[in-house]
């Protein structure tokens, strides 16, 4: 049972909704050290020996179990790259909660780059939740550059919820997925940038098997002087369905670049891209103001709702 200080607890709440040590398997990493780990009968967490990171093996058929692997950074100037590999056995159905919170009160940049690989076997299904959060008023930046590689075997499915709402100065997120026959990928990304923050999010999804489907949806808000780029590519190499959507609100002097790309290499590939960027509709603000909200309050409600 790990001892956690107040700061660690606060960050755990932000990134993993954890108020105490989680049920099931977990590894809590704080300033490059594991401060608590538990494997279960069906889920084995083993540290890698060659590089920093974990091998997480989930037995075939494991149902209704969860793995939490939150990461906390509180030391200013700490920069780390961590390699986590997930092997999800045939027919398993699990929840994986990752997430990283950086508290940087110092003047040196703090950076965590998590390289996650998922090997999801036949018929297995994974719900993956990843939240990124930054706090601290130091001049040092809080940087997160996650790379996520997903391999879905035939009939496997993965639902990814990626959230970055506050405090991360710089992020360059890359997600690559390869889907077999009948495999299904759903991505829900929610992103908010403010100040001078920059966030790049790139998806490269290959639909390689008959009946594969992908649905990648990003909702984002760029405030102040922040910059975002959403770069989503879906390639259809078989009879398949793919959809990407970027739905964004810009405020102040925020900037957003949406780069759709679809590549169909099979006559039965059906691919769709939608992108909409715009400021908050005036009528929405007016409506909420007629309910007694100030313009600021109305804006806040609209943005919170949009990102909820």
């Amino acid at each position: 049972m790990p001892e956690l200080n107040q700061l660690q607890k606060k960050i755990l709440e932000e990134v993993a909704d954890l108020h105490k040590v989680p049920e099931g398997a977990y590894n809590i990493r704080s300033d490059s050290k594991s401060v608590g780990r538990r494997s279960t009968e069906n889920i084995e967490i083993v540290p890698k020996t060659d590089v920093s990171g974990l091998d997480i093996r989930i037995r075939p058929g494991t149902k209704n179990e969860s793995v939490h692997i939150p990461v906390i950074l509180t030391e200013s100037g700490l920069r780390e790259t961590v390699y986590n590999d997930f092997y999800i056995g045939e027919g398993a159905d699990v929840l994986i909660v990752a997430g990283c919170g950086i508290d940087n009160c110092g003047n040196q940049d703090s950076e965590h780059d998590g390289i996650h690989r998922f090997f999801v076997e036949r018929g297995a299904s994974v719900r993956y939740v990843e939240k990124h959060y930054g706090q601290g008023d130091g001049r040092g930046k809080r940087i997160l550059n996650p790379v996520t590689e997903v391999t879905l075997a035939d009939g496997a499915s993965m639902e990814m919820e990626m959230v970055q709402i506050k405090g991360v100065d710089d992020t360059d997120r890359r997600t690559v997925a390869k889907l077999g026959a009948g495999a299904k990928l759903v991505v829900r990304e929610r992103l908010m940038t403010h100040g001078e923050q920059r966030a790049l999010s790139t998806y490269d999804v290959e639909l390689n098997g008959k009946g594969a489907t992908a649905d990648v949806v990003s909702r984002s808000v760029a405030k102040d002087d922040s910059l975002q780029r959403f770069d989503a590519k879906i390639t259809g190499n078989a009879e398949c369905r793919g959809h990407t959507e970027c739905d964004s609100i810009i405020m102040d002097r925020g900037r957003i670049l949406a780069v759709p790309a679809l590549e169909a290499n099979d006559v039965d590939a059906a691919l769709v891209h939608e992108a909409a960027i715009g400021k908050i509709a005036g009528a929405q603000l007016i409506k909420l103001m007629t309910l007694g909200l100030t313009e600021r309050e109305a804006e806040e409600q609209i943005v919170n709702g949009f990102l909820s």
Binding site: A283, M289, T290, G292, L293, G305, F306
Partner: peptide, 26 residues
């Protein structure tokens, strides 16, 4: 608008507005 709303004026639009992510309860 806000001040009038707070003074006690309510207004149902001819063409109501839609909001993504805001629930009826909200």
């Amino acid at each position: 608008i806000t001040e009038r709303a707070r003074a006690g004026i309510a207004f149902a639009f001819q063409h109501p507005v839609r909001f993504k992510g805001i629930r009826v309860l909200d």
